[in-house]
Amino acid sequence: MDETSVQNRPAKRSAAAPTRREVYEAGVRRRSNRIALISTISVVLAIVVLVPLSPGWDAVQRAFFNGRVFVATFPGLLDAFLLNVMIFAWSAPLIAITGLAIALCRDTRAPALFPLRLFGIAYTDIFRGLPVVLVIYIIGFGVPGLGLPRPWNSPYIWGTLALVLVYSAYVAEVIRSGIDSIHQSQRSAAVSLGLSDQDTMRFVVLPQAIRNVVPANMNLFIALQKDVALLSFIGPVEIFRQAGVYKSLYANFTPYVGAALIFLALTVPATRYADYLMNKQNRARR
């Protein structure tokens, strides 16, 4: 009781009259805010004024920032973006499940399950070591090349498989780091109650581990949203491919800028949210 009243004292006083210290700190804060504002305005002004002064600006403006082309193509781009969202929507759960399964494979201890463990290690090593676009090419062109009947020659299926293979390797590593982050004493407490190793993992370790790695996994899924565009190389007319079609049609690059804006409208809030979660977690840990 005594302690809290001591802690509360400065706060109560500031309501009445600020202390010397508080006056000083408020002054410092005002000054830094002013400097930050002035420096931001000067940089933005410099860009807005100087870039149009460059010799090629008129050509660039016509090719990339053409209002007429933008208005004409934007609705079509939005339509095509729906396909990105759909591919993302069915890939993400598959990736989460596969990633979790691979992480658990790598964590097995029983000798009989050693092959699983070996598989987990090989899987994460291989798919984290390859460029996404390469896996998409190999699987997206390779498997349908076997002459499979419809619908098994669909680029959607094999493109999705390629994304799942690569991204689940990353998700598996993130989940594994989460499992490692749970203190040994939690396992001790669980097994001391007579819980089996499987139950200890399922009810004690995994729920905490997965919660800890939510922000890290969100960053991976933001990256996935962008990499869905790579599927355009094997067929699906998603937003990147659609922008390419418009570019040829109008002989103008503005559709690419439109596509970029659509991506940002989704990824920037998601990134901000992931950062917010990460910060919240760091504060809770302190």
């Binding site: 004493s185 407490a189 007579g194 819980l195 004690v204 729920p207 905490q208």
Partner: peptide
């Protein structure tokens, strides 16, 4: 244990019931 080692993601009652339920 000295450091309690309760499971932080479960309520007190769930902490107590986990082992009797599973075992």
């Amino acid at each position: 244990f000295q450091s309690y080692n309760l499971f932080p993601h479960m309520t007190a009652a769930e902490n107590v019931m986990l082992a009797p339920r599973r075992v």
